[in-house]
Design a protein around this nucleic acid. Structure first.
Lengths: 206, 206, 206, 206
DNA sequence: AATGAATGAGGCTTCATTCAT
DNA sequence: AATGAATGAAGCCTCATTCAT
């Protein structure tokens, strides 16, 4: 299909259906093990229709990755209180990330997908890089404000933060954790802040 | 091929070549996107030979997973000083893990690979569960010894530890990090201990 | 669509647009390699509209072949002076054919198109057979009038005439020739007349 | 398949079988209407084997075109007496071409095949250009030797020669001609020589 | 008349696996 | 041990055609 295909209201809905089903199936079975027919059957349409909305299998994937990236960032932005101190903001961002990623597990599972395609790989990486850069910025603020020690590299710290978040959400998705999502999010926040600040009780909140 | 196949010296070498190439390719492209031909071409042998050494595609994968698991555990064991306190042991185990995983990156990437096969998935999960259980045990010792606060769930803490390790090693593998491996390992140790103990400087001496 | 469809003025124009685009595309890429969408896109209409004007893909093709045949014959008829001698008439017909075929190149390329359909193949053949029969008749007249030697089969001669014409026009269409069309037509006339009228034995050595 | 696949004796035979069947089917039904399965079934092998020997459908076609071009040129070369005068050589070349093209009709039908691919189109054109250039050279010799008049463009004459040959062979292939092949070839020789050597003005009408 | 949506048969191609030598 | 050849199931994608609006 051409990029500029004009879609009617119905068309947009149908496309979204396909995207949703694809996200689910990709995350359940993996990219390679999900067939176009599976997606179409799940959406209740004929095989050929897929190609009315997407150029090919990889294109759906690409579209999912992009939209997911945007939504995560928005969720983080909404969770962060602009008036709070940077450490609190990090905690809020961390909690929001864990919550969002666990809730939209089917989307985020896609990130782990394998790919031979360089372009796609780049796209995937970009996502976490943005996340990491956002975090690094907050960490620098916190250092400048004297809230956390300055003896570690902010980028390295940010990498560890992002890593923890991703891993916890992932474990939750795979059912390795029975914990309610809110408790997991709050645990992640505490963990990250402790690791950043050196000692939570003394420095942060009560 | 039968499991009992007695291999000559040359045979064992050839098999190892195939295993090594398979590990590289699987981790670069993923399981599904790696073809038997790719592995054989990389090893410089004809496609038919693959089945002289392995029963099928999945068998190589299984063999890789198992051997990798063993080696990681051995590396951790060797790094841990049996006479040290539990927190120090966690730090040592963490450092060893990061170092080992980064060094054998192509092997460990396999853990992230998707699979539809339940049996295979179980195998993969078992690996990190063992790692996590080892860590949780140490954490419980540390709590019992009063070295770290008892107000978090040891299993949850262990999960976070494992997650950080995996993510950092992974980032190193993808070249997102220019840090020397030793510094990365040592950073991981500090991060984990701070997060566990609340404040590294105060509690855990040097 | 029904054959009886009464078209408005605009309707006839739209249909002609589709026919023209189809002719161009068929001749450029061949029948099989031309998709309905291509034709519609070239005409700037939606795919569905095609079937308002034509029963199916083959129907356009048929319509093109038939109309082209008629027009060629008319062009030849108009170019031939009914009072001239047969050889001159052949020359005139040849010139007119080359000119017409080169000018309507996109139509005539269709004749070379492959097809599996027997009915369609028959239609295509009929066209050149009529052309050939017309020529053969003139050749017989010329023989009867003693203008050209009688030692060759008139049908075979006609076949060669038609072949030359088609090939030259074709070469012109493919841009293999920079010659102005009028010069090409006149060359074709001379060539054909020489070949028909010449005495090979007399002229060329042994 | 890679270009450098090393084939055993058996392999080369099998490949030739596939090429032969492909040539037959392409010429009978056209390129587009011939399926890979058809070729394989005709050769009595499984569908997948096709791709052991050829990269894809178009690759067979390409290989056929190239081999056919070589063989035609060789046939012409063998038919031409190097000691004869140029006009006789042209006649010999013409006869050989008609005979060869009619005999290997299934190969030459491929030349008329449609294609969307520019590279392929170029390949096809090159074939007739070589043929035409060979002929043009002989014509120039004949002019230099005073055997044929110099008042026409040698390239244009060569084009007409090639066109006649192709058209006659083609008509024979399509069964529009019942003439024995030898008579057809000899007719083509006479026709061409007459057209080249004749003086139209002198012989016909005004 | 015109459009965008939908269908589904069918072709091309891939690739794990097996076979013969 | 090792190779090239062979198989066939299965997936991706195309496209003529039809439908609903």
């Amino acid at each position: 299909m051409s990029d500029e295909r004009r879609l009617t209201e119905q068309g947009r809905e149908r496309k979204q259906q396909l995207l949703d089903r694809a996200a689910e199936l990709f995350s359940e079975r993996g990219y390679a093990a999900t067939r176009i027919v599976d997606i179409c059957e799940a959406a209740g349409v004929a095989k050929g229709l897929f190609y009315w909305y997407f150029e090919n299998k990889e294109a759906v994937f690409r579209e999912l990755v992009v939209s997911m990236r945007l939504r995560l960032r928005r969720a983080q932005g909404e969770a962060i209180d602009p008036l709070a101190d940077p450490v609190t903001q990090i905690r809020q961002g961390t909690e929001a990330s864990v919550r969002f990623m666990a809730e939209h597990a089917s989307y985020f599972a896609l990130l782990e997908v394998e790919t031979r395609d360089r372009e796609l790989a780049r796209l995937l990486r970009t996502g976490s890089e943005v996340h990491q850069a956002d975090t690094a910025r907050l960490i620098r603020h916190a250092m400048a404000a004297g809230l956390i020690p300055c003896d570690e590299d902010p980028d390295l710290l940010a990498l560890a933060v992002v890593g923890t978040v991703a891993h916890l959400a992932n474990a939750h998705r795979h059912g390795r954790l029975t914990l309610p999502i809110d408790e997991l999010a709050s645990f992640a926040g505490r963990w990250v802040v402790r690791a950043l600040a050196g000692h939570d009780r003394a420095l942060i909140g009560r």
